[in-house]
């Protein structure tokens, strides 16, 4: 998943933006641009963490080749 791959980088970008913004040395135009970018990054990072579509798979190896099979986790109790 692309967002997951980008997560660490995005979070670092976000931290940098917050740092830049709080430095207070930017013009209004720059500040607004950074702010907008920061809000987008924060949203995308939060969404990535909130994702609930997990995959559970079993790694198999046959004749030196890897394959993934669905792992049945339905008996994993779901607490509501």
């Amino acid at each position: 998943m692309k967002e997951k791959l980008m997560f660490e980088e995005d979070l670092k970008k976000l931290q940098k933006i917050v740092e830049d913004l709080s430095g207070g040395k930017l013009t209004l135009g720059e500040s607004l641009k950074k702010y907008e970018e920061g809000v987008k990054l924060a949203q995308s990072c939060s969404l990535t963490l909130a994702d609930a579509e997990r995959k559970v798979e079993l790694l198999m190896k046959k004749e030196g080749k890897f394959s993934l099979e669905k792992f049945d986790d339905t008996d994993v109790a779901e607490e509501k």
Partner: peptide, 9 residues
């Protein structure tokens, strides 16, 4: 639940 899992049994 955002974490995918690969089990090697």
């Amino acid at each position: 639940p955002c974490v995918d899992i690969v089990v090697r049994s």
